[in-house]
Design a protein around this nucleic acid. Sequence first.
DNA 1: TCTGGGGTCCTAGGACCC
DNA 2: TCTGGGGTCCTAGGACCC
Length: 424
Amino acid sequence: MFALVDCNNFYVSCERVFNPALQGRPVAVLSNNDGCFIARSEEAKAIGLVMGAPAFKSRELLKMHKVAVYSANFPLYGDMSSRVMATLAELAPDIEIYSIDEAFLDMSGFRRYDLDSYARSMRKTVRQHTGIPVCIGIASTKTLAKVANRLAKKNPRYQGVSILNTDEEIHAALAITRVEDIWGIGRQWSQFLHAQQIHTALDLARAPAPWIRKHLHITGARVQAELNGNSCLKLETVRPAKQSICTSRSFGRSVAAFDELLQAVSTFGGKCAVKLRKEGSAASLLTVFICTSPFNDPAKKYWGTRTVSLIQPSQDSITLVRAAGLILESIFRPGYDYKKAGVIVSGLSPAPLSPAILPLFPDEEPASYDRNKKIMIVMDSINQRYGSGSVHLAAENSAGWKPHQELLSPRSTTVWSDIIKVRG
DNA sequence: TCTGGGGTCCTAGGACCC
DNA sequence: TCTGGGGTCCTAGGACCC
């Protein structure tokens, strides 16, 4: 048996932990740059705020219902997530942290227990230790556990826990789950399935397997098998190393000047390097992209991107920032209002202890490799101790393009001065 | 005026090998 | 007139997830 534990309206719940006055009120959290809704309380859903919709289009609604609106506070949410996961890890032998607000647990050793009362006690413990409300779905496959979790969330009768044990229970659950609400069935496929008169999870489970294999490929075939109780997806207790890392942002205002774009791209390159070092990986490919707003007049649109391979895999900010700047020079076109840029590192491998490739000609490479490595160690340890961003390369600068963050709550669990702000 | 960010997997097709 | 068979690797694009 698998349990899926999913935090309720996670970002909203995080805000509520440190501001109990938000209980019972409509609350919404915005994406970076205060753009779209990315979390809504039940009250906010009820008044018609739509997930992913741009916030400015709902301004009247927000005002009318006195919705508490927040800028995304990822340091807070990330830290609260760690607390929830640490609590869960003590309650079950094996845990897969699936996303910032979800975890699968292995329940196979709990057959002798009353699963229902154990799940209810887990729920209570997480609430007590972290302040975060969760729902739990339990079933024999991950996909069915997702179905069960959804029922637990939607139907108050379950009081946060739903277990699919018998064939009758599974049958009933699948019959009331629409295909678009199944884990692994997105917009395109659900549209296709509805057109084929496959409307519910039960319809999908019963559809001819070869036909599903043909049209929804191996991925859809797995979903179908899992709905029928054949477990295809194992619990992944060890997170595999990342294959790519991306840092990108929409700008707070449009940026036309090369120098400001260079500062943005340098900042993103530097952030990618920090993430690489944290991951213990080195990148052999570096991609930079810059683009105008997709909502612009088509004549003023531009999308520029280029990928280069590095002479040797690197995790060093100096090398990556310099390379990102060179790519930017080659893709930059004057005369456009840029709205977003990003850096992607890929072709990742475990970071080597020494240069993997020695230069053919005696230049500065091996020396700068060692020197830069030492600088990175010092930078990382200073930033670890005094907070990220305490030291950075001079090229990293956000003055010109900084995203909007006008409704930010304090970083109550990660920054001392923000705790004082709360008390003050 | 104002529209997010960060990932993974799978498939098809082309380039290339002997 | 007739033009093989069996592979691998890489990439772009499309689907999905939170």
